[in-house]
Design a protein around this nucleic acid. Structure first.
Length: 471
RNA sequence: GGCCCCGUCGUCUAGUGGUUCAGGACAUCUGGUUCUCAUCCAGAAGAUCGCGGGUUCGAAUCCCGCCGGGGUCACCA
């Protein structure tokens, strides 16, 4: 039985967005659940598009999301190198096989000439095919011109795990470039050679490559290579649903989501369910659950929209599921600045009452700042409150003073005892909780929302509570 | 334009001829949980399954046509 080997093969031209991550994730899952290997290969054959530092960025993105690979440019492996620019001799070796077999030839035309052919075809409203201009006696290829594949146009039928049975006619097959004049191979050539040499069993990639499949099939044949299993992922669409998600349309770097307080596991679960589900009503999946239940056959064929609202909900869900000490670790970079002057145990208590209110870790400062800093008074909290705005100034003062005095006599400062004192105050003042508790809550936090009153006061401490009720 | 893929509530989807003329989730709205926000619970609204034909006793599910959306036609991947 052959070992399942999948790969993720991005080009280092920038960051990774959710579309790329999904392809990587699915390839990763297929390998992991089969006990196989997941490989990272850098497709850096277009020097002009390469962005400095993006290889490291891709690696960081995969690591951050927990998509660990078994072989790759930075860690090596038995089938390296894993950077295409380091494999040029391999491509030339395979190209020579094609030349020897009469299946590759030097392209004698200047770029402008090819462009003319193309425009003539467009003018005649016919699809452009390079092979219609195939030279009769091409010169010996010396590397100064592109090397083209001599296609053998024919009808193809093939199976795609996601897309099902597909077929196309010979008209879509053409002579494409194998090696460019700069000596680098094209993707079309290099990925097939590499997949074969690296013993890749499943080619999982985006839909944009679907229309090139007949050409690839033709090349596999010419090269005498066995076909891997193909799985084509539908596009993830932008929020408007009218375009494939792309960097130029504002697709975000996945690492930006992490910086914005999203949990890697939330991102992974959300991305996995964009086009896939396990057939039950289960909505969120842990890493292990995905490894166990993921199935390429259940990936849908239609493009899915990227809905941030749903991601936000998934993220909140995962935050609530986190054990407190783990949440503490994750939250570390997100605290308001003054929180660092306070001891860890206190922060942990603050976190415990903020946990169920966090949608992202980035919500932490807004939710907890009054535990660390003196809040600034904001009277609109009272004047814009339906019930409180009816009170006169002296009524407010009276109530706050009463609260101060009642709480000042309290020796045992605990949520329970505080609540008892507050309940007594309710009786002695004859006010509704909606008035009394709201007022105390506002005076002690000056925040639009906070955890329930007794917990907030308990954590704030007696001194701070009384002091804020005096101001 | 040629070729290819897709089309179920606003969104993600379940559903492959008949206990599903449609289930779940997000979002929205309502009520409850001694105060706000959130959580949680209960509930509401929301899809004539893109449209039109056909096959069938019966179709979201099969066939045909149309429309709509997307992708691709590079010395980019």
């Amino acid at each position: 039985m052959t070992t399942i080997r999948t790969r993720f093969a991005p080009s280092p031209t920038g960051f990774l967005h959710v579309g790329g991550i999904r392809t990587a994730l699915f390839a990763y899952l297929v390998a992991r659940q089969a006990g196989g290997q997941f490989i990272l290969r850098l497709e850096d054959t277009d020097k002009s598009r390469e962005v400095a530092g993006s290889a490291e960025h891709l690696v960081e993105s995969l690591n951050t999301l927990g998509l660990s690979y078994d072989e790759g440019p930075d860690i090596g492996g038995d089938y390296g190198p894993y950077r295409q620019s380091d494999r040029l001799d391999t491509y030339h070796r395979w190209a020579q096989k094609l030349i020897d077999a009469g299946r590759a030839y030097a392209d004698p035309y200047a770029p402008a000439e090819v462009q003319e052919f193309r425009e003539a075809a467009a003018a005649a409203k016919k699809p452009f095919l390079y092979r219609n201009h195939r030279p009769e006696n091409p010169p010996v290829w010396d590397g100064s011109t592109p090397l083209r594949f001599k296609a053998d146009p024919q009808q193809y039928q093939w199976h795609d795990v996601v897309m099902g049975d597909l077929k196309t006619g010979p008209e879509v097959i053409d002579d494409f470039i194998l090696i460019k004049t700069d000596g680098y191979p094209t993707y079309n050539f290099a990925h097939i050679v590499d997949d074969a040499e690296m013993k890749i069993t499943h080619v999982i990639r985006g839909q944009e490559f679907l229309s090139s499949m007949p050409n690839y099939l033709n090349l596999y044949e010419a090269l005498g290579l066995e076909l891997p299993i193909f799985a084509t992922m539908p596009h993830i669409m932008n929020e408007q649903g009218n375009k494939k998600l792309g960097k130029r349309d504002g697709a975000k770097d996945v690492l930006d989501y992490i910086r914005d307080g999203y949990l890697p596991e939330a991102l992974v679960s959300f991305i996995a369910t964009l086009g896939w589900n396990d057939g039950t009503t289960k909505e969120v999946f842990t890493h292990d659950e995905l490894v166990e239940t993921f199935d390429l056959h259940r990936v849908g064929r239609s493009g899915a929209r990227f809905d941030e609202k749903r991601l936000l909900w998934v993220n909140g869900h995962f935050i609530r599921e986190l054990p407190l000490d783990e949440l503490m670790r994750r939250a570390e970079p997100f605290w308001p600045s003054n929180a660092h002057t306070v001891d860890v145990a206190y922060k942990q208590q603050v976190l415990s009452i903020a946990q169920e209110r966090l949608k992202t870790l980035n919500d932490l400062p807004a939710l907890t700042s009054y535990f660390f800093d003196e809040p600034t008074r904001d009277d609109t909290l009272i004047t814009e409150n339906k019930q409180l705005k009816k009170l006169t100034e002296s009524e407010v003062t009276t109530l706050i003073n009463a609260a101060h005095d009642a709480l000042a006599t309290l020796d045992d400062w605990q949520p329970g005892t505080i609540q008892d004192a507050l309940n007594q105050l309710l009786e002695s003042t004859g006010r509704k909780p909606g008035i009394l508790f709201s007022l105390i809550r506002i005076y002690t936090t000056w925040a639009p929302f906070s955890p329930q009153l007794n917990d907030t006061l308990a954590l704030l401490g007696k001194d701070k509570t009384l002091q804020r009720l005096r101001s």
